[in-house]
Structure formats: structure tokens, C-alpha cells
Amino acid sequence: MDENIGVISSMIVQARPEKLETITTELKAFPGIEISARDPSGKIIVVLEAENDRQLADTMNDIGNIAGVLGVNLVYHHNEHAN
């Protein structure tokens, strides 16, 4: 694991089904994002590795601003630097 990574999270991105391919392509351009699964109904499961919580929040906001994204919901959050 990259020592600069401090946050591992997963989220469900709800997208317009007709925009699924475009949104998937845009998501893959974000650093630290992996698409784990997607459904033709517009649900995309994303895993994100980030340096800190601020980067996680900013990335979630940026994802929410992609045309055709209806919502972004955090499902799992783990901070590696927490004691």
C-alpha cells in the first residue's frame, strides 16, 4: 500500500443510465479511483484511496458535479492514520 494513502473508502454513485458509459470514463480519470462494479440501472460502485479526509470530500463533490450523476453516497470509510 502507498504510504501516502491515508483514507480508503467506497461509495455508490447513482447515474442516469443513458450516461453510464460517459460517467464511468470520467470516473476512471480521477486519481485513486477504482470502479468495482456497475449496473445498467445506473449504479456504480467506486473504491477511492485518498491522502486525507479533505481529499475524499473534495473528490466526492467533484463526482457529484459530473453531468448525469444523480447522487454520491459514502458506504465505507477507513482512515489508516487513525490510532
Rank of each mutant, 00 (worst) to 15 (best):
M1I: 10
M1L: 12
D2N: 14
D2I: 05
N4R: 14
N4E: 14
I5P: 09
G6F: 12
G6S: 13
V7G: 07
V7Y: 00
I8Q: 08
I8G: 13
I8N: 11
I8A: 14
S9L: 08
S10K: 05
S10C: 06
M11H: 07
V13F: 01
V13M: 03
Q14K: 09
Q14P: 03
Q14D: 08
R16Y: 00
P17A: 00
P17M: 03
E18R: 04
K19Q: 10
E21P: 08
T22Q: 12
T22C: 06
T22P: 02
T24S: 15
T24G: 15
T24H: 13
T25K: 14
T25F: 12
T25E: 13
T25Q: 15
T25I: 11
E26M: 13
E26Y: 12
E26A: 15
K28R: 15
K28L: 14
K28V: 08
K28F: 10
F30Y: 12
F30N: 01
F30P: 07
G32M: 09
G32E: 11
G32W: 09
I33V: 13
I33H: 09
I33Y: 10
E34I: 08
A37S: 12
A37G: 11
R38W: 11
P40T: 06
P40G: 02
G42K: 05
G42R: 04
K43N: 00
V46W: 09
V47Q: 14
V47I: 15
L48E: 11
E49P: 07
E51W: 07
E51F: 09
N52A: 06
N52L: 07
D53M: 07
R54E: 12
R54H: 09
Q55M: 11
L56H: 06
L56C: 07
A57E: 08
A57Q: 09
D58R: 04
M60Q: 04
M60R: 06
M60C: 04
N61Q: 04
N61V: 01
N61H: 07
D62M: 01
D62W: 04
D62N: 10
I63S: 05
G64W: 01
G64P: 00
G64R: 04
I66E: 04
I66C: 00
A67S: 14
G68P: 03
V69G: 00
V69A: 00
L70K: 06
G71P: 02
V72A: 05
V72D: 02
N73G: 10
N73S: 12
N73A: 11
L74W: 05
V75E: 10
V75Y: 05
V75P: 03
V75D: 11
Y76Q: 00
Y76I: 02
Y76G: 04
H78L: 14
H78I: 13
E80V: 10
H81W: 14
A82Y: 14
A82V: 14
N83L: 15
N83D: 15
